[in-house]
Design a binder for these strands. Structure first.
Lengths: 342, 342
DNA sequence: TTGAAAGCGTTACCAC
DNA sequence: GTGGTAACGCTTTCAA
């Protein structure tokens, strides 16, 4: 059923019906109540595409999905979904094709120009990220999950990666560890740099020399965690502790230690960063894993919220949130074993 | 820039431009080439909402995201994205709010009636799933990832869960195991029933009595894997083998075994189902995990493909794909230890 | 092979 | 507080 028909059936003009349904203030409350009741009864629902064309609003928030799907994605999306359900705003996932890789910006440009979304979320920013400059220029509202070092002012929400890794490292140093390996994220991403900075800051503060051989970069997979941990443990003197980038990386570290007959939480300490997944919990690992913890799901919810605020008129350059990260000590962060200190 | 403007600039009518850009056959090839070149040069791009209103097509495929985000979701989505990039079709994620839970159908009804999507994917079907009847009735094209037992004919793509679990169980029986625990999925889902059927079929075939105490149901998390495996291992006589529902469940089983000083691949055998994740690989576990394997990402790609075919006119009732599942033997499936057979 | 003009179903401006 | 009507930007007959 279309507006015109429906309006006719209940004996009102399309205009009034439209206003009543969209919550405009000037319509008589009794009229509005009647319209809404009739709409429900007759099953009238505005054609969303007509609404979009008329208003210029898309009713959707865009997220570009990189081809390498990561396990954090669905938790983040669930978080966004939590906030957006009830708002009648959808989440639009734009596939990033293989061939777009070299030309990522083109994808964002198309997204902006096609008016399919009212705003977008940018993930995994790099320093001076060109996507930020582009969206700013195209005037498509956006928020960065993470941060970028750039002249272009932008809304962002980030966790305190620098602080998280600094505190992990400090804690391990306090336990007597001196050779601490850092299993960092992909090179060139802002959060990777922040984590490295936190690591270095902790070392510097305690007067421990930075050894680049103890730092590796890569995706957060069990495979890479294993390979790098294994390689690190083959060094002499070998590290006595690991700061692991993710839960998956930590799984790899556990395996590497076991494969060399080293006991986690005794011979080797580990603190990992945990984004909080319902299906894999640090508490449940054996031994239970000490972590820096921050809910990626909550971040998704808040990002959706902030984006709605920006769409509602809030100044985007004003939106900057740095979330603290909890350090939770469990069984894998222990004093350095005696023999290793000798 | 809008169509009218653009057409004027290059000295053609909007009609011709529209036809040229949409690949209509009646337009002169030279004209088309020129239009496309100019469009690229001047950066003309049709307003997607106007296109949608005019054509009645939404240019998007819908996926309802259940509030409990699972780790398979992003791999499946990546798979779909692989197929849809280049098609100018988006993926629309509709958040399912907490309060929708009791009234899931309402959500699908709204989605269908709002014309925001051309088709939807249904996940986690149950026998007689009411969503299938509803979408059929509303005439919104859809495909089921999984299957449902129902009178309503429907397009589906499923993996052979029954066969997978049957083969795992058979293999373990062949190795001499008699007490085999099944860590199954959430009760009432079709695939859970299929897996149970496969398990029972294998036992029946070998004349081993079915013991309901050896079967548990739950989400695929490490936590539940641990708890159920642990409880199972406390039974006397205890199971000598596990068929685990997922990689995460398997992690829990490993931990349960370790916590009781039982060696996986020696005291206890395990075969898990692996949906193939880039960040957690069965091969890399210690000991390496025997699995039934099927790529959920590939399923996503194929489902997108089939949906495009259906939208292109293929008869949906004709679309039925049952994917075989590979059994890959690694280190965790071993003959039952002697003492246990005594 | 090209063009004029009538939709597509709303919203929002301007009268009343 | 309500209604008439011109946008919104494209596609698609129908005519030439």
């Amino acid at each position: 059923m279309k507006l015109k028909e429906f309006a006719q059936q209940i004996g009102l003009s399309p205009t009034t019906v439209s206003r009543a349904l969209s919550g405009y203030p000037e319509v008589n409350e009794a009229t509005r109540a009647r319209v809404m009741a009739e709409a429900a009864r007759l099953g009238y629902r505005p054609n969303i595409n007509a609404v979009r064309l008329a208003t210029g609003r898309a009713g959707a928030i865009g997220v570009v999905m990189t081809k390498a799907g990561d396990y954090q994605f669905s938790e983040f999306m669930s978080g966004m979904a939590d906030r957006l359900s009830g708002e009648d705003i959808d989440i639009l996932i734009t596939p990033m094709a293989e061939h777009d890789t070299g030309d990522e910006l083109q994808l964002y440009r198309r997204l902006a120009e096609s008016r399919r979304v009212d705003a977008v979320v940018i993930h995994s920013p790099r320093p001076g990220d060109p996507r930020i400059a582009l969206l700013h220029q195209l005037k498509l509202p956006f928020i960065v999950h993470g941060r970028s070092v750039t002249d272009v002012p932008h809304a962002w929400l980030d966790i305190d990666n620098e602080g998280a890794i600094r505190r992990s490292t400090e804690h391990l140093l306090d336990l007597g560890h001196r050779r601490i390996a850092l299993l960092n994220g992909r090179e060139s991403l802002t959060f990777t740099l922040h984590r490295l900075a936190g690591y270095k800051a902790a070392l510097a503060e305690r007067g421990v020399e930075f050894d680049p051989k103890l730092v590796t970069h890569g995706n957060f997979t069990d495979e890479i965690g294993f390979r790098f941990a294994r390689a690190a443990l083959e060094q002499r003197p070998r590290p006595t502790a690991f700061v692991a980038g993710s839960m998956m990386t930590a799984l790899g570290v556990y395996r590497a230690a076991r494969s060399m007959n080293l006991a986690i939480g005794k011979d080797i300490s580990v603190i990992a960063h945990d984004d909080v997944f319902p299906y894999l919990t640090a508490e449940n690992m054996a031994p239970s894993l000490s972590t820096t913890r921050s809910s990626i799901r909550a971040a998704g919810t808040r990002i959706a919220d902030l984006l709605l605020q920006i769409l509602g008129g809030r100044d985007a350059t004003d939106v900057r949130e740095l979330w603290p990260v909890e350090l939770i000590l469990r069984e894998t962060s222990r004093p350095v074993p005696k023999e290793a200190t000798e």
